[in-house]
Design a protein around this nucleic acid. Structure first.
Length: 836
RNA sequence: GCUGGAGUGGCGGAAUGGCAUACGCGUCGGUCUCAAAAACCGAUGUCCUUACGGGCUUGUGGGUUCAACUCCCACCUCCAGCACCA
């Protein structure tokens, strides 16, 4: 009977039920067994699962199932990143509560995940919107507060007018909100921050430990953390005691500084320009800068704008008085908010100086053009050269001068060596409802007081009005806001902001290790056993945000003594996108393929196989219905071949009969044995060497082709002992396929009379190196680099033997043209290269 | 601009110094059938040649080597991230 759509539903449902009922994938800590923690980035529950989820989770599932068959104690959990804005939007639009909407979505997702047959330990399922989870969010937050890593400050923040909430720097992409894509504006607000910069150094340094992460992810994090080495240099404001500290990465160019430029927000600006004729213009410029959105101000093609303050600063190295300007290309948030401008050796300064007719001086000579004057330059010279007009440093190569000048300035109190970072502290508070309340209380007497652990969780009130109008909905719930101060008992009020959802996902991998603990966030011993995550799988879009935050949390929790690893994720695989017609599948483009429809027609196994076979996991995957059907045909072939064999009396009886031994085998038998062992080797190496699922599957296809050939063309295939050999080959096919197509593998394994337990508990097959060593090998013969013949020769034949075989071949001799042999190179069992 | 990645048949892709195009898709031909579908078998880089054969071919140009998709140098194109970060 052929494999039909009905068979698929029956078989897949049967095994999904079996796995669930027998808790086949339950993970228990067992110190005697080596652990393997496979984790995929948990989904935001916004509806049903889509192809992106299918791909991500299928990759993880194959790894989990493979590692289990290799004897590891595998932890493979699943949960839901369940707080966030879509739930609130649904509430506003449809009047359902965010909670109701979210839990409905979770149910839909769970059903979709079960239909795919993923090997999760459902006992540690979690949802971040459960009070039992976010209680520990709040606890971690109070620990951060106690350690000075959570603090409140007023400053300009990124504000999304559409979402009506603040955003972290990491959440602003191309000056737009990462979620709704609307333009982000700046707003002055008092907000909660997490001091991620406390870990700048180790977040950067420990990237070196992540050798098996994709290079680009490491590079992106390096860029984001952005460590710059240079010097702080002190410029006195002429006629005052005030000092402007500038930061530069080019202390070698200090003698070429012809003006100083401050950010419009710099605290000294108003003081310097006070009473000057320029004061009005300066104030107007500050006003303008404050009202221009950061996006406009920062856009790369903007003309460089600025005004003179009327003041002068003294260059400490030569006593020169240089004008102080303010300009919109200097940012208060980076460095010291002040720069020294060296127009000849910095392109931005060059453009600004040309525009405003400021002086220039060459202090690094271009080796190709040493006598160029500033007037002749068309752009700044930013390459290597030797110093000029720099007093005692003249003639010094500029790279060397960087350190020499820094040290000299240090010694003479003109400046100091310094390091600045691009990474800023993480803005964590959001003026939204559907998130974990920040567990803080404001008391007139005691100030900011964290909610004591015994009073956690601070639960979200169910009756908050969700209207979509500005401000946190929690602020409108009187019973929530009004509390007694935990310290002094007087009237006080609660913080009404909630945490950014990235807080929730920064430690969920720890909670999975001990998901139901109601006494603590997690048991230290369990986390010590399971962590770090051995293999993490998810989308590249989290290369900075989630991965950086999780690394930060791990370092903090390690400092608290709760976690023993430095880094949470040992290996990272970023899977490629799923495309249709060359574009990412999305609802707005209307090109989505619903996994459910595919499962209904071809089954979850076919879908899994297609997704693994069509492209390497890191690459983009183009949806191809014909390819899907090709995989369906292959699975049918396997099914039919196994069914034919084991439904016959011969096939069944043979399962107990020992197969042919090596010396009983004829050439065809040996060929089958070779292919069987070659397939095991190829698949195993593909799994171990970077999860090459596409080639692993192709290796099984090759074996299946060999089996079909053996059945149809081998004389004597009806002999019982030959059938033993054949059965073993088929068993190998089923075992090798089982991580990829687990339902069918279980069913066939049972059909083969093997199933006294799940195939998940069967050991991964091992290959026999001896079976791969055939007696003869095919080698190619090259003449002057071109292949001119193919020969079957004994394995490990020596040069003399090869000469005697090859040098009588007509085609080879013809191409040698009777010329003398200059070289005769033998690559054992591969080829012979003859040079004439 | 900086950083990272990628360029191989009609298509997805394989091969990391040793027979380029495994495996799959598609296409063409065949078997079975009244017929079609399914299934199965065979062919399929490209050019010249009736054929036998031979030339060319992994983005481009050079180099190293008996041998290069693979290593080195220069360049082109595409994708992604960052970007007035001093």
């Amino acid at each position: 009977m052929p494999y039909t759509t009905n068979d698929i539903r029956r078989v897949e449902e049967k095994w999904q039920k079996y796995w669930a009922e027998h808790k086949i994938f339950r993970a228990e800590m067992d110190a005697k067994k080596e652990k393997y923690y496979v984790l995929e980035m948990f989904p935001y529950p916004s509806g049903k699962i889509h192809m992106g989820h299918v791909r991500n989770y299928t990759i993880a599932d194959v790894i989990a199932r493979y590692k289990m068959m290799r004897g590891y104690n595998v932890l493979h959990p699943m949960g839901y990143d369940a707080f966030g804005q879509p739930a609130e939007n649904a509430a506003i639009k449809r009047g359902v509560s965010p909670s109701e909407w979210t839990y409905k979505c979770i149910d839909d997702m769970r059903a979709g995940l079960r239909r795919m047959g993923f090997s999760y330990d459902w006992d540690c399922e979690l949802a971040t919107c459960d009070a039992s989870y976010y209680k520990w969010n709040q606890w971690i937050f109070t620990k951060m507060f106690e350690n000075g890593l959570a603090y409140k400050k007023g400053s300009p923040v990124n504000w999304c007018p559409s979402c009506e909430t603040t955003l972290a720097n990491e959440e602003v992409i191309d000056n737009a909100c990462w979620r709704c894509k609307n333009q982000v504006i700046q707003k002055d607000l008092e907000q909660w921050y997490l001091k991620i910069t406390h870990y700048s150094e180790s977040l950067l340094e420990d990237l070196k430990k992540l050798g098996s992460w994709p290079e680009r992810v490491v590079a992106m994090q390096e860029n984001w953390i952005g460590k710059s080495f240079g010097a702080d240099i002190y410029f006195k404001v002429k006629g005052t005691e005030d000092v402007i500290t500038v930061f530069t990465t080019r202390p070698d160019t200090i003698f070429g500084a012809t003006y100083v430029m401050l950010a419009p927000e710099h605290p000294l600006v108003k003081k310097i320009s006070k009473g000057m004729s320029q004061e009005k213009a300066v104030l107007a410029f500050i006003e303008k800068a404050a009202n221009t959105s950061k996006s406009l101000r920062m856009s790369g093609d903007a003309r460089k704008d600025g005004v003179f303050t009327g003041g002068y600063a003294v260059n400490p190295v030569n006593g020169e008085a240089v004008p102080i300007w303010i300009g919109d290309y200097v940012l208060m948030e980076y460095g010291t908010g002040a720069i020294m401008a060296v127009p000849t050796h910095d392109q931005r300064d060059f453009e600004f100086a040309r525009e405003h007719k400021l002086p220039m001086r060459v202090v690094v000579q271009d080796p190709a053009n040493p006598n160029v004057t500033p007037e002749q330059m068309t752009k700044a010279f930013e390459d290597q050269g030797v110093l000029a007009s720099s007093k005692q440093f003249d003639g010094t190569p500029n790279e060397m001068a960087k350190q020499m000048i820094s040290e000299w300035m240090s010694a003479n109190e003109m400046g100091r060596v310094s390091v600045h970072w691009r990474l800023r502290d993480w803005l964590i508070s959001r003026q939204r409802y559907w998130g974990a309340p920040i567990p803080m209380i404001y008391c007139k007497t005691c100030g900011i007081v964290p909610v004591p652990e015994k009073d956690l969780p601070v639960e979200l009130p169910k009756n908050a009005p969700i209207t979509g109008e500005g401000g946190s909905p929690l602020a409108k719930v009187k019973e929530f806001v009004e509390v007694k101060c935990p310290a002094c008992g007087q009237d006080a009020h609660r913080e009404t902001d909630t945490m950014a959802t990235f807080f929730d996902s920064s430690w969920y991998f720890l909670r999975y290790c001990d998901a139901h603990n109601d006494k603590e966030a997690f048991d230290k011993a369990k986390v010590a056993y399971w962590m770090p995550v051995d293999q993490y799988i998810g989308g590249i879009e989290h290369a900075i945000l989630h991965l950086l935050y999780s690394r930060f949390f791990t370092k903090f929790l390690k400092d608290l003594g709760l976690v023993s690893c430095d880094e949470p994720f040992t290996r990272l695989l970023t899977q490629g996108m799923v495309l249709k017609d060359g574009e990412v599948m999305s609802k707005s483009k209307g090109n989505v393929v619903d996994p459910d429809e595919v499962i209904g027609k071809f089954g979850a196994d076919t879908l899994r196989m297609f997704i693994l076979f069509a492209a390497p996991p890191e690459d983009q995957l183009e949806w191809n219905p014909a390819g899907l059907e090709g995989n369906w045909r292959f699975l049918n072939r396997v099914w039919n071949t196994v069914e034919n064999r084991y439904s016959s009396d011969v096939g069944r009886q043979t399962s107990d009969v020992s197969r042919l031994t090596s010396n009983q085998m004829d050439a065809e038998d040996k060929k089958l044995e070779f292919e069987r062992n070659a397939a095991i080797k190829k698949v195993t190496e593909g799994m171990e060497g970077g999860f090459k699922f596409n080639t692993a599957i192709s290796a099984v296809m090759v074996l299946m082709n060999a089996i079909d050939k053996y059945i149809s063309s081998t004389p004597g295939v009806g002999e019982v002992r030959k059938q033993g050999l054949l059965n073993e080959a088929l068993e190998t096919v089923v075992l090798l396929l089982s991580p990829f197509v687990p339902h069918m593998a279980e069913e066939l394994w049972q059909m083969m009379g093997k199933a006294d337990k799940s195939i998940a508990f069967i050991s991964w097959p091992v290959f026999d190196e001896a079976a791969l060593k055939t007696d003869t090998v095919k080698i190619a013969a090259q003449v002057n680099g071109k292949v001119r013949g193919e020969f079957t020769v004994p394995r490990d034949a020596d040069e003399a033997t090869l000469r005697s075989i090859i040098l009588i071949d007509e085609a080879v001799l013809r191409h040698m043209g009777g010329k003398e042999i200059r070289k005769f190179i033998v690559v054992p069992n591969k080829l012979v290269s003859i040079v004439v």
